[in-house]
């Protein structure tokens, strides 16, 4: 509430977080106004938590005028799924969950098929299926420009050709606060309200607003095994521990959350928001370092985006 008072006295947003919040709310309202059937892609992570909080603010006292969609892979941390269902219930929002049924039938998994194939089939193809099935014309995502070099050039309203592919050359100039949602037949839009946020902004905002996040972000003793340079948490018995591997209890937390066999933990003592923010200010490695998928090929984010990844 101290923020509100400061704003009121100066009659303008005073802090960078106020301005980022206002920009994101503006974008969410543009989506509601310009599209017939938008959806918010809820991936359960901290960025999704911030996005959801902003959506609650943008339309207050009404609920957000769009449902949440989670594209599940069957390999998310159990705590993520529990958190997802609890939040949707608490906020009274409609939550759609989609798992690629063909991928499921074929038993696609990150352990046998590798991160690239698993991600393509369960995430990219799964997302495309869900968007097509519900005929969503706009999908709101929590991606940020600071995550990756290719994302730095991404628009807030990112036009996707029929089939969801991203054509860098077809992206439209975005000026002022004018976001253009007009599309030709078959085209869809991906919208990124958190484009101008950094990881540190996200955590400072979570702390300021008291936004609930999955407990996996906070350090705790967890059973982990070291594999391919990543510290993997043994979230269930599907991980198949090799004869050379040793499962150890270590004080770890996660900077990003995805499929548990693909998401590396970091050794950390940061068990509170304040400690996380302090750790991040001192951190010397970037957020997506723990994501196996980014390192499979050089320039791999651009490739994935062209194929319809977020």
């Amino acid at each position: 509430m101290s923020t509100r008072r400061a704003m009121a006295e100066d009659s303008a947003p005073v802090s960078d977080l106020d301005l980022l919040e206002a920009e994101s709310i503006h974008i969410l309202r543009e989506v509601a106004a310009q599209f017939a059937n938008p959806v918010l892609l809820y991936s359960i992570g901290k960025d999704s938590s911030v996005l959801l909080h902003l959506a609650m603010k943008a339309f207050y006292p009404a609920p957000p005028p769009f449902p949440l969609l989670h594209v599940d892979t069957g390999w998310k941390f159990r705590e993520m799924i529990a958190f997802r269902d609890r939040r949707a219930r608490e906020l009274g929002l409609r939550l759609l969950v989609h798992i690629n049924p063909e991928g499921l039938a074929r038993g696609i998994n990150p352990l046998d098929h590798g991160s690239a194939l698993h991600t393509d089939i369960m995430k990219t193809q799964g997302l495309r299926q869900a968007l097509d099935a519900h005929r969503f014309d706009a999908a709101i995502g929590g991606a940020r420009r600071d995550e990756e070099a290719v994302r730095a050039k991404e628009r807030v309203f990112s036009l996707r050709a029929p089939g969801h592919g991203w054509e860098p050359r077809r992206q439209r100039p975005e000026l002022w606060r004018l976001y253009n949602g007009r599309m030709a037949q078959g085209e869809t839009m991906r919208v990124f309200p958190l484009s101008n946020w950094t990881e540190l902004d996200v955590w400072r905002y979570i702390a300021r607003e008291g936004i609930p996040v999955v407990p996996l972000y906070f350090a705790r003793p967890r059973p982990v095994v070291e594999r391919n340079g990543l510290l993997l948490m043994v979230d269930d018995d599907r991980l198949r521990i090799g004869p050379e591997e040793i499962v150890r209890e270590r004080m770890v937390r996660f900077r990003t959350l995805g499929c548990y066999p693909l998401t590396g933990a970091i050794v950390s003592e940061a068990a509170t928001l304040e400690a996380i923010i302090a750790e991040m200010a001192e951190s010397r490695s970037s957020e997506r370092q723990g994501r196996a998928i980014d390192h499979d090929q050089s320039g791999s984010m651009e490739k994935k985006k062209r194929e319809g990844y977020f």
Binding site: R4, A12, P13, Y60
Partner: peptide, 18 residues
């Protein structure tokens, strides 16, 4: 001036309000 964090007594340029 309605916001989720309570009504505001005043708002200025750049703020997203209802």
């Amino acid at each position: 001036i309605v916001t989720m964090a309570g009504d505001l007594p005043r708002a200025g340029a750049g703020q997203a309000v209802t």
